[in-house]
C-alpha cells in the first residue's frame, strides 16, 4: 500500500509539473514536487531511505526527459541522502524547520544539478543558478508548506501501523 501511494504521488507530481504548473511559473521557475517529496521523505525515514526514493524519483524524471538519464537520479539521491541527516533532529510538528530544509535543499539541489550537468556535458550553465535559485527555492517552500501537513500525517500513520502490526 505504501509503495502504491508513493507511485501515485510520483505520477501526480510529474503530471502536475508538465501541465498545470507550466501556467503558473514564478520568475520562470516551477515547483519541483519530486524534490519536495524526496526531502520530506528523507526527513521521516533517514538517509538511506531518502537516497533510495531520490534515486527512483529522479530516474523516473530522467526517463521522461530522455536525455542525460541519471542526472536527476544522482542529484535527488544525493540530496535525499543529505536531507536524511535531519531525521530525528527535527521536531516533525514544527513547520519552520521542514520548510527551511526545502528552501536550502532546493538551492543545494539546483547547485548539485548544475555541477553534475557541467561534469557530464562540458557546458557551463552556472548562469542559470543565479537566475533560478531563489524563485525556485521560494516556490518550492510555498508548495512544501501546502504539502507538509497531509504528508506528515500520512507518514506518521504509516510508521505507527508498521510498528504495531
Amino acid at each position: 500500500m505504501h509503495y502504491f501511494i508513493l507511485a501515485v504521488l510520483l505520477f501526480l507530481s510529474l503530471t502536475l509539473e508538465t501541465t498545470v504548473f507550466d501556467l503558473f511559473t514564478f520568475y520562470g521557475a516551477k515547483p519541483d514536487f519530486l524534490l519536495i517529496l524526496v526531502l520530506f521523505y528523507a526527513l521521516f525515514r533517514g538517509s538511506i531511505a531518502g537516497a533510495k526514493i531520490g534515486f527512483i524519483f529522479g530516474l523516473a524524471e530522467d526517463l521522461l526527459l530522455g536525455r542525460f538519464v541519471g542526472l536527476n537520479a544522482a542529484t535527488k539521491m544525493l540530496i535525499g541522502y543529505l536531507a536524511g541527516f535531519g531525521e530525528r533532529k527535527l521536531f516533525k510538528d514544527n513547520l519552520i524547520l521542514p520548510l527551511l530544509v526545502v528552501f536550502i535543499g532546493s538551492i543545494l539541489s539546483h547547485l548539485i544539478y548544475i555541477f553534475f550537468f557541467s561534469l557530464v556535458s562540458g557546458l557551463n550553465q552556472f548562469i542559470l543558478f543565479r537566475q533560478f535559485a531563489l524563485p525556485l527555492a521560494a516556490y518550492n517552500s510555498l508548495m512544501g508548506f501546502i504539502i507538509y501537513k497531509p504528508f506528515s500525517k500520512y507518514m506518521t500513520r504509516e510508521f505507527t501501523s508498521h510498528r504495531f502490526k
Partner: peptide, 26 residues
Amino acid sequence: SLVLAFFTGWNRPWLTKPEALWQDLL
C-alpha cells in the same frame, strides 16, 4: 548514474523500450 548520464547526453539516436513506454504511459 553520472556515467549513464554522460553516455545518454547528446544526440541520442535511440530511445529504450522502458523510456518510450514511460512516456506513452504519462
